[in-house]
Design a protein around this nucleic acid. Structure first.
Lengths: 133, 133
DNA sequence: CAAATAATGTTGCATATACAACTTGGAGTT
DNA sequence: AACTCCAAGTTGTATATGCAACATTATTTG
């Protein structure tokens, strides 16, 4: 056999992301928001007003996934959507406030993870991204 | 601000795993099986007959997630389960055959990914695992 | 041994994800 | 302007995931 079955790159990356997500989830438990939703809020904070499709491009998410995630965030009043068929999305006032509230917890979690990963770990992550894109 | 929002370790790992999963999924599309299910079959191939809980430990999956995944694999006759409350799981004959059929495709996908990652990429992945455990 | 406690499995619920199929609107082409 | 084609959004369906609550079995303790 060419490779060891435990060596599967897919399952190993999934596992790593579950571990990291667990850290964020525990920290976010007091807020009524998930890691994924936080990520989209952060993307919008960065990008400002964008077409919905841009979010999927940035995060490698399928159109339908973005559509549903956006719907949830809209229901919670974190984002505004123009009413065209291809709407533009941006953070609402509440969305902006939520981002501001989230950042300290997010930074704590990042500290937690970085203390495990170390400077080298961050380099490894960046290198993986560079080669896998 | 301490870190750039795009720097989020959680969302970056999630994104990487989605990219890798996409490779496997495209390759597996001819079979009626998902990446996750394949992973569990591979774990069982490695571990032999094990308590259900061991699977979750190995993969960092919640009990309930394992429970449901196992149920799906059982419905497809890929695994056998003893009938106790805490059952032991193992690959069925069909499960073993499925693993044998999957391995060539899995290896192709691994080749694909490794050609992107390179030797260094694999080292980076291993290092991440070592530090994040 | 009986009761309390711990560990493990399952189910209800909510979100996350992708694909296929359908819908809708814009961009070209003639 | 009408038609075609394409890009993007939505919905149906299936799996994946975790938490909370409950069920069941094993273990510990009095």
């Amino acid at each position: 056999m060419k490779y060891d079955l435990q060596f599967c790159i897919g399952s190993r990356l999934r596992r790593l992301s579950r571990i990291a997500d667990g850290h964020f989830r525990r920290k976010l438990s007091e807020f009524n928001i998930t890691e994924n939703q936080m990520t989209i809020l952060f993307v919008l904070k960065k990008m400002g007003k964008v077409e919905q499709g841009k979010i999927g491009q940035a995060l490698v998410l399928e159109r339908s996934t973005v559509s549903r995630n956006i719907k949830i965030l809209e229901k919670q009043n974190y984002i505004n959507r123009t009413s065209e068929y291809r709407p533009e999305i941006e953070l609402s006032k509440q969305g902006n406030e939520m981002v501001k509230k989230l950042i300290p917890l997010w930074e704590e979690t990042m500290d937690e993870l970085i203390s495990k990963l170390g400077e080298n770990g961050l380099t490894h992550l960046t290198e993986l991204e560079n080669s896998l894109n």
